[in-house]
Write a protein that binds this DNA or RNA. Structure first.
Length: 489
RNA sequence: GCCCCGGUGGUGUAGCCCGGUCAAGCAUGUUAGCCUCUCGAGCUAGCGACGCGAGUUCAAAUCUCGCCCGGGGCACCA
């Protein structure tokens, strides 16, 4: 019944072998850094499919490297996922399932599909490169099991042994040349403490977890070594699953790389991981990007294997479309100059917060003393007529540094320019305008943050941090703290 | 070096599997005009792309081969 559409696919492409009500998906973050827009998009894709196919969704923390994992990062992901409105059916940590992973490890050993190896790192690497097996590969099962028990009993320290999967040392795909399944890491884990020192690597842990969770479809960016993982799953007699991989979500001027970002935080070049220029979810949130925008954007760009670099303008445009109907309009006058208006009537005007939608209104009392933006009147000559938005027309009687004007009637004159204004009862505010963090070649962009000062009408005092408004003829801005806004884009 | 995977306008994508309806759609961007008193809103119009070269075919963005370019993997990271 579905017609082949020549142009314009709606939504994400259908999933292979997906039966409604019998699907399982997962969000597998490693809690070793803050959640980024890249995670957000990958998670959104999984969530969209989970909804579409009425599946189960797991939030699974891949925390099998005690050296990298930190408690605050678990929270970062939980917070970000909740903010996005993604509802997971289950949450777990891989570190909770060590016994199950050990059981699979032992099974591989018993089957002769894995072995304990005491070669040092350099030797392993060299032999792997040369395609030559080491002497441990053919050790009897009993020997391997004995070492295994000793490893579990913590009789061997870091670097002593590694448990390797028996792949194919001649395979052209190097990752199949007996990859490592377990290694000893003596450092305490933030959740399990010193209980375990033998930690599984990603490929094995993943296979076991996907089986346990009933995952049917794996959708993740930069998936790799899929062939290896399939071999491990086969050796363990696990179900086959659909793996769909897509390339990373990169944004122009905003690499996600911790190598590049961390120094900026440490040197306080940015205000923190939640700086509005950062590609973190916290940064985006502070900038005024709303969850729906991330969802719509993800749906719009979808996923591909093509290398890409998104332009912020697309996300920001989607964001504006969402913000537009629900954002109050408030006057903001950047770089203000006083404007004395001769003959100005004293008015008490009630102005709606939104031109079309009922978002309430505010009342402003005006007299002969107003402020407008210097940029608006700068180029005007004496005698120019313009309109103070939603108020009345004025005629410039004196141009230049100290502009003056006179009242010029209420009626709307077609094609007159309209400027926003504030009364003496205004608030001084500043707006930071975030730009791209990096220039070409990973060079920090000194001009990535601009500050605009000006006057905002008194009603801004009623806003709460987090509120997003539109300053007409300026842009959408989010109140970050009293007197300080961040421009959304 | 070896192994995967990609290459559609400035950007992101649709179309590619099952060749014609594609002188290539949509979004973003940009230009111009309109606009009920904002705009980075809305409306209208314009701009702009199938990596290169062969081959198959009546017909190729779509199939085949070669080349070039890009990304990822080849960790006791995930």
């Amino acid at each position: 019944m579905e017609e082949k559409q020549k142009h314009g696919r709606v939504g994400l492409p259908p999933l292979p072998n997906a039966v409604k009500g019998k699907t399982g998906f997962r969000l597998p973050p490693e809690p070793s850094g803050f959640m980024t827009i890249g995670h957000a998009m990958a998670f959104t894709i999984n969530y969209l499919y989970k909804e579409q196919y009425d599946g189960e969704l797991w939030l699974r923390f891949e925390d099998t490297n005690p050296r990298k994992v930190q408690p605050r990062y678990y929270d970062s992901f939980r917070r970000g996922i909740a903010w996005l409105g993604i509802e997971c059916d289950h949450e777990k940590n891989v570190s909770d399932d060590m016994e199950a992973i050990y059981a699979s490890g032992k099974k591989l050993l018993e089957q002769g599909d894995a072995y304990a190896c005491s070669c040092d790192e350099a030797k392993v690497k060299r032999l792997r490169f040369d395609g030559v097996a080491c002497e441990h590969r053919d050790n009897p099962v009993e020997t391997n099991l004995r070492i295994w028990d000793e490893l579990l009993a913590k009789k061997h320290g870091e670097g002593s042994y590694v448990v390797r999967f028996k792949g194919d040392m001649q395979s052209p795909n190097y990752s199949l040349r007996d990859t490592n399944l377990f290694r000893v890491i003596a450092q305490a884990h933030p959740l399990t403490g010193e209980r375990y020192t033998l930690w599984p690597t990603y490929d094995l842990a993943n296979a076991v977890e996907d089986e346990m969770c009933g995952i049917t479809h794996v959708l993740r960016s930069s998936e790799f070594r899929n062939e290896l993982q399939q071999l491990i799953r086969d050796a363990l007699k696990f179900r086959r699953l659909e793996v769909i991989q897509f390339s990373r979500f990169n944004f122009k001027g905003t690499p996600v790389s911790k190598r590049l970002l961390r120094p900026l935080v440490e040197k306080k070049v940015v205000s923190g991981w939640d700086d509005p220029r950062m590609p973190t979810v916290d940064g985006l949130k502070r900038r005024g990007v709303v969850p729906q925008a991330i969802r719509d954007f993800t749906l719009q760009v979808g996923y591909t294997k093509t290398e890409h670099e998104y332009d912020w303008s697309i996300l920001l445009s989607v964001n504006r479309k969402i913000l537009d109907p629900v954002s109050k309009r408030l006057f903001f006058v950047p770089d203000p100059v006083p404007l004395a208006v001769e003959g100005a009537p004293d008015r008490k005007v009630e102005l709606p917060f939104h031109p079309q939608n009922d978002l309430g209104s505010r009342t402003i009392s005006t007299g002969g003393e107003l402020f407008v933006s210097s940029g608006d009147v700068r180029g005007l000559t004496k005698g120019s007529v313009f309109r103070l938005m939603d108020l009345y027309n004025v005629e410039l009687t004196s141009a230049g540094q100290k502009p003056a004007a006179k009242y010029a009637g209420d009626e709307l004159i077609p094609n007159t320019r309209k400027f926003q204004w504030v009364t003496p009862d205004h608030a001084e505010v500043e707006v930071t305008v975030p730009g791209e963090l990096f220039l070409e070649g990973d060079v920090y962009n000194e001009g990535s943050l601009k500050l605009v000062r000006g006057f905002a009408e008194g009603a801004v005092s009623q806003l709460k941090p987090g509120d997003i408004v539109q300053f007409p003829r300026f842009g959408f801005c989010r109140l970050d703290s009293p007197g300080h806004f961040i421009m959304t884009g």
